[in-house]
């Protein structure tokens, strides 16, 4: 398993704090979502990301702004890490016209062309080939259109998706054509109530990359620095035309599958094991241990993020709902 070898000399203070802030943003935002859901401000299925922050932050903060990210139904925090403002994400969850999908998408359909955020794919595994399409586009721009294109696409999905045909089909095409893509498996060991070992004949997802001649690595998904380091290597491969990489990030969701899930099947012992490995606390300990920042500085970030999220809620609350006369708007390209 890839574990971070970073020492204080590898990691600047500003980078460490950037990672910390992004993870705190993800956690604080999701906690606020739960509160807003129970207060009737957001609706439908809401899948929270608590516990998995090191994966989103470790991968996406290693990317360039013009790189692509493709996500799943559990997409709020990927969107935030990619730079979509908390206001636009919260407003989308409130169903408001100021949301990143203009209130048409909702929790599972977040999009932003401006941020090269491809979605928000609600059916398991369906985003994997779409992400490969973005990666193909980069290769096409370079080799057919003669453009200086070297964007990388990061494609997120869970352990459940790796039993779906689209996972294998897309890994094959990505390896065959050496597409600049990173397949990021967030292995939290559970679908809804289906434990990964009950669904997969071989639970070692990273081993499945080798079938396609693709590097596959198991990564400590609770350690943001380990995720970041593995991602940096994968990015270097992808940008230099060496093709795809699969990263299996071992992580855990701290809440149920969605806010509608009673979460009765996971044992208290299992949860306690993972709670003790809270990725935000792990980074906090390292930052303090290495003297990169003080407790007061971290607390200042916590307070700042609290204000960002409060502001997002206020913005979402005060925003307008879509105009009923615009029901059909955005269906076709010529509608605008």
């Amino acid at each position: 398993m890839v574990q971070a070898v970073a020492t204080p000399s590898d990691l600047s203070k500003s980078e460490a704090l950037l990672l910390y802030e992004d993870m705190v943003l993800g956690r604080t935002f999701e906690d606020k979502c739960a509160e807003m859901y129970y207060r009737g401000k957001m609706f439908g299925f809401v899948h929270l990301y608590n516990g998995q922050e090191a994966v989103s932050t470790g991968v996406i903060k290693a990317l360039r702004p013009d790189d692509y990210v493709c996500s799943t139904y559990r997409d709020h925090v990927h969107a935030l890490s990619k730079g979509i403002p908390a206001r636009a994400v919260m407003a989308e969850l409130f169903g408001k016209v100021t949301g990143c999908s203009k209130g048409r998408g909702g929790s599972m359909h977040l999009f932003s062309a401006e941020h090269n955020f491809l979605g928000g794919f609600a059916f398991v595994a369906e985003g994997i080939p779409v992400a490969a399409g973005a990666a193909f586009q980069t290769k096409y721009r370079r080799e057919v259109l003669g453009e200086n294109a070297d964007q990388v696409t990061a494609c997120f999905f869970g352990d459940g998706a790796t039993n779906n045909g689209q996972f294998f089909e897309t890994l094959n095409m990505a390896a065959l054509w050496k597409l600049p893509i990173i397949f990021v498996v967030e292995n939290n060991n559970w679908a809804i109530g289906m434990a990964h070992p009950r669904a997969a004949a071989d639970t070692r997802i990273h081993k499945k990359a080798a079938v396609f001649g693709m590097p596959g690595q198991e990564v400590d998904g609770m350690d943001v620095l380990a995720v970041r380091q593995a991602t940096q290597e994968a990015i270097a491969r992808a940008r230099s035309g060496e093709g795809p990489t699969l990263l299996e990030c071992m992580t855990y969701r701290f809440r149920g599958h969605s806010l509608a899930d009673p979460d009765e099947l996971r044992s208290p012992q299992e949860k306690e094991y993972w709670f003790a490995r809270d990725p935000i606390k792990l980074l906090q300990v390292k930052i303090l241990e290495w003297g990169l920042a003080t407790q007061a500085e971290l607390e200042a970030i916590d307070r700042k993020i609290q204000l960002v999220v409060e502001d997002a809620v206020q913005f979402a609350d005060e925003s307008l709902e879509p105009d009923p006369k615009d029901l059909y708007l955005y269906q076709f390209a010529e509608d605008e």
Binding site: I128, P129, V130, A135, Y140, Q166, T170
Partner: peptide, 18 residues
């Protein structure tokens, strides 16, 4: 393409989006 209609269609959609 390999014989994988659902995935090469998804790939085309991603290319069209970008």
């Amino acid at each position: 393409t390999p014989i994988c209609e659902n995935s090469f269609t998804g790939l085309a959609i991603g290319a069209a989006m970008t």
